[in-house]
Design a binder for these strands. Structure first.
Lengths: 262, 262
DNA sequence: CAGTGGTCTAGACCACTGC
DNA sequence: CAGTGGTCTAGACCACTGT
């Protein structure tokens, strides 16, 4: 029997057509938007809301679940429901694959995270040969088998991105690209050393809700979509030499591009 | 008392730790993934699922609501729950603002939709002067007031995008840009005629769940995120001459970009 | 241990759809 | 009209968190 919750919440309008659980969600949403509950703040508990509004617990839970699917709050079992904290965002600039960024030793991800004051990490490294999916094969000019490089990126212990690079075997087999650590400048530097001078990258961007698998590997909260990015690297002969399939936690990224006006 | 639902669904595992409503959602998800329920197909009704699994209705509804937040199904009041149809996708190419595309009469949106065989439409046109938000002002070099052009784009009667363009008043006031229909080639063509030769565009891309407002104006189904795109147009003097703030239904778009390797 | 959210039941009444 | 999903109640037991 905790006391009535704080005075930021109003009363229900019984004459309204709007469902009770939506009205409750509206009031909580407004309180969050106006900063009366701030990032990381704990919302009133379910029992407090039940008491405050005089409704059943399922109705309150319905409201909270709505806010969760909107990405506004996260619930933590045994602790409470909290306003979802906005994690630091990683900005991907349009010049991020410029050749000059490949000259140095460390990978772009590490360099950039260090500069931003976050602790970067790469895990789940896996390199193997496999049969490409139809889509990947089409993008790479239909090789029968490809080298696949899988890895997960983390910032301050939080997974933010999962990426798989595919390369035709005739390019990658027996080269440093097939090693877990391809060396300074990453696989793009190695590709150029092997004579595949890079010309440009094509990127395709989609956004959607994550699959249960993606929720697990990226430890995504409810209401967080993913950005799905497919990049194809082309060399100066026009050949597609790599396809990188990336799934990113959407709340951790801003992508930036520059378009020519001509 | 309808008959037991079709044979595509299995039984529950009472020894499993996994919650019953998750097991039911898993089976439905798998059936959808494997194509046993196809796009637009009707799922078994709630009462059929209640009967099939021997659980209460709330448990079944919990499963279905899970699938809805994942974007896999949509429910229609009084009709049933359906596998969410994948609408035709609009592809935004990286050369979409090239000058040559501005020479013709119609707007890029109309031309492109016609070519793709869809019926394009633009509505909710509104042009007015207003005070910019802090963010917009910062991007435009802190003008005190701006011209705002709002419009909504539809394909085959479905809203897919809502966009607002902001321009400094000293550029736009009293020009065709301040008219509801700015004429052939759109406002970018007018800007160039007014002496603001365009140099490049910067685009910032985010993805997130929609606000209740956005759900309404874009008529979004549950489980569909939005792509938020902010484009800044720069003229050859380096001045930001327009900011366009766009919210797109994520299931209706693929964005394509080209990055230089140099 | 008390308090929190997670799961589940067994009802009820309503609003919408289609025949 | 029967069948569908939408809302709501009033309980119950469980699992997790903190002290």
């Amino acid at each position: 029997m905790p006391p009535i919750s704080s005075g930021v919440l109003g009363a229900l309008d019984p004459t309204s057509d709007r469902a009770v659980f939506r009205q409750i969600a509206d009031q909580l949403r407004e309180a969050i938007d106006k900063g009366r509950f701030k990032e990381g703040d704990k919302l009133p508990s379910e029992s407090e809301l039940v008491e405050h509004y005089g409704v059943s617990r399922m109705t309150v839970r319905n409201s909270l679940s709505l806010l969760q699917t909107e990405g506004l709050v996260v619930s933590e079992h045994g602790r409470g429901v909290y306003v979802r904290p906005r994690p630091p965002v990683r900005r991907l600039a349009s010049d991020r694959f410029a050749r000059r960024h490949r000259e140095q030793g460390k990978s772009a991800f590490i360099v950039e995270a260090d500069a931003a004051g976050s602790r970067p990490e790469v895990d789940s490294l896996e390199v193997r040969e496999e049969r490409p999916t139809q889509d990947i094969a089409a993008r790479l000019g239909s090789p029968r088998r490809v080298l696949a490089r899988r890895r997960r990126y983390l910032l301050d212990n939080r997974p933010v991105e999962f990426a798989v690079s595919y390369l035709p075997l005739d390019i990658a087999r027996g080269t440093p690209i097939a090693e877990p650590n391809p060396g300074p400048g990453g696989i793009y530097a190695r590709l150029e050393e092997l004579g595949h001078r890079l010309d440009h990258f094509d990127e395709e961007i989609r956004a959607r809700m994550p699959s249960p698998d993606e929720i697990k590997t990226l430890r995504l909260a409810a209401g967080v979509p993913v950005i799905h990015l497919i990049r194809t690297a082309h060399d100066t002969t026009g050949r597609a030499v790599e396809v990188c399939d990336t799934v990113m936690a959407a709340d951790a990224y801003v992508l930036a591009y520059q378009l020519p006006a001509t």
